[in-house]
Design a binder for these strands. Structure first.
Lengths: 366, 366
DNA sequence: TTGAAAAATGTGTGCGCACACACTATATTT
DNA sequence: AAATATAGTGTGTGCGCACACATTTTTCAA
């Protein structure tokens, strides 16, 4: 009935050799004669051999050290979610030959990233997962680990020239387009739109610029040149000129909507709007942070684009683990859908999030 | 460094018994003295024993027969997606002791469901996955398999009184609310809204009624009694009165939006709208069927709520497999998020869909 | 108090694989 | 031709667990 799965033993019999030879062919290690290799390859082909990954991990009990490099997650709800994903994956993979450890750096101090990266190198990891927040600072680090042959995966932000094993995240340009689309629904008349970047060093933050680009492009397509866009950038929490500009923007009568480019910024902007009694303005932000959920419920925020930080981190670890342990070929790019959260579908996301269970076999080709 | 995972052997040593006794306690089979059980339980607790699921599947090489009961997927894009999920899961689990076979019935002929269910029983399955389309017809079947002790999982539609092992799907009431919300965005003035049910036997279709209920409730909350809702139900493709009523509805000047309750209906309604040149009316439908995607792109459809039929089916099989093979406790209800698809985030969903890779460890408690 | 039945516990094997090791056939050197 | 190197091959063990089976201990009736 259900044909049994083909084992190495079956291949050996079919090829008229021993399991040892098949093993050598499969992992091309040791010496194998041309003749034997051909026979084995033929048998593998013919029987469509697919290794039993479960038995594979049992057999070899290597320990792979995976390291995740993140911004500090204390007092930071976004990176706390990321960290939660890391913890989950730690739990998940602990049995199966992967140990995951986290190294944190300080978002305010670029030098701390370099310190941490040195520490990581000294720990001799087998794989590295990281969010390349500081574009300029991470590039040389990529060089080093690439030379050392340590596979690494990126999430959150993609850096194409990094030679990473895999990127896990979203299409940020398209994310900006989605934001613009959401602000335009049912608003045929053009007007002014605001883009807010909060507490980020814009020059070093490719990801935010990509979002803004997508946002602008969509508006242009939708309204032509008839709408104006004001981009504000808060450099620090004590940036008074930002506050003033924002207040001016909010008083414009033709203000159609606001787009905040980051999850933390969303919270900041929403609290500002609320305290200024400006609940009528449509607003799009990022992520299901507690505060953001609150403002969404209150009607201050209208849409949240869900970046799934927790899942990204989890997939990142899984990607490395699959590569190292199962020797699976992984997808070079793993794009998450751009999920739109509203007041009405919010609850369905929260259920899913708390009971989130990860996917061992994602990020794999075939 | 990384503390090794606790094995049964370790527990046995800690409790001062043999692995056999620990095994008996773990699976409560065979006889174990009170004293021994207490010692083992204490050791399990203290060492936080977690079985190595991988080794577990290797050890016992039982074959579990899982059966999926579905409407025929030929010439039906929705059920074709479901079937794709089944195939994926088949591939995924084939190595690990589960064989999945599909039995199809005819959506137009309720008696064919009963025929198929008889066939299924005769095949003596270890687990059953099904979409309870015909409410009244499935109830007695649930009775039978429940008595026989065959675990079964539902997807697509939940029937709470069914005593199913698990339900995989969405909150359909909330789904209707999301649809209404999407139609209301930026439309402060009340008007007329249409609800379209296409080609379904409404009396037997709890799922569609739940959606309509949610839809109506939201509109009431949003507009009070100032908006009117017209619910149309097409009973067959040759239902002319439906066409006439729909045409009348579309000509109403205060028509604000249309909500189609099923994925296939979405396609039908969209094609009707297009051929009548009514592109300006906001419309919400279901699922990423090829035709629906086309109409979304064209601007005829504005939003699709993604029911993830493929993933639902896959999770359904995984749920049963986890229950049978790994003896894991599975979640009684596994609600998917109500994902909103627009023109701008559509692409990000299509990527994810084609490369969809399933989650072995979802649907599990802890 | 003996002995069979029942209860409780221990032991051994195999799952499919990786990997170390032992072994054989052939080639190369002396 | 013997000694040695080396290419090529086969065998055996263990991973953590389930499960069948063997063994010991206890119970209780005759």
């Amino acid at each position: 009935m259900a044909k049994k799965a083909i084992r190495i033993k079956d291949i050996a019999k079919a090829a008229g050799v021993s399991v040892g030879t098949v093993d050598r062919v499969l992992h091309n290690r040791g010496k194998v004669s041309e003749k034997a290799k051909k026979k084995v390859d033929a048998a593998l082909q013919k029987n469509e051999y697919r290794p039993n990954l479960i038995a594979r991990t049992l057999g070899s009990n290597k320990e792979y050290k995976i390291v995740a490099i993140l911004p500090k997650h204390e007092n930071d709800p976004y990176w706390a979610q990321v960290y939660k994903g890391i913890l989950l994956s730690k739990h998940e993979w602990s049995h199966y030959g992967a140990s995951i450890s986290t190294y944190s750096f300080d978002l305010d101090r670029k030098s701390s990233f370099e310190e941490v990266s040195q520490k990581v190198l000294r720990s001799r990891p087998d794989g590295i997962l990281m969010a390349p927040i500081f574009y300029n600072e991470t590039l040389p680090f990529f060089e080093v680990i690439h030379k050392k042959g340590i596979p690494f995966a990126l999430f959150n932000t993609n850096i194409i020239e990094s030679k990473a094993l895999s990127f896990i995240g979203q299409d940020l340009y398209q994310s900006g387009r989605v934001a613009a689309e959401l602000l335009c629904i049912g608003q045929k008349e053009p007007g002014t739109f605001g883009v807010l970047h909060v507490d980020e060093d814009l020059e070093d933050s490719v990801h935010l610029l990509q979002k803004e680009k997508g946002f602008r492009d969509y508006l242009k397509e939708f309204y032509g040149d008839r709408s104006s866009i004001e981009s504000l950038n808060r450099t620090s929490s004590s940036d008074f000129s930002f506050k003033k500009k924002l207040a001016t923007l909010l008083n414009k009568t033709d203000l159609k909507g606001l787009f905040v480019s980051s999850s933390k910024g969303t919270e900041t902007a929403a609290s500002f709007l609320k305290s200024h009694g400006k609940n009528g303005i449509r607003m799009v932000g990022y992520d299901l942070l507690d505060k953001n959920i609150e403002y969404l419920d209150l009607g201050v925020i209208d849409f949240l684009i869900h970046q799934k930080p927790e899942q990204q981190a989890f997939e990142g670890v899984s990607c490395l683990a699959n590569h190292l342990i199962f020797k699976k070929e992984v997808k070079p790019v793993n794009l998450f859908p751009l999920e739109v959260v509203t007041r009405q579908n919010l609850a369905s996301y929260l259920v899913d999030q708390t009971e989130y269970h990860p996917n061992e076999f994602k990020n794999i080709i075939n």
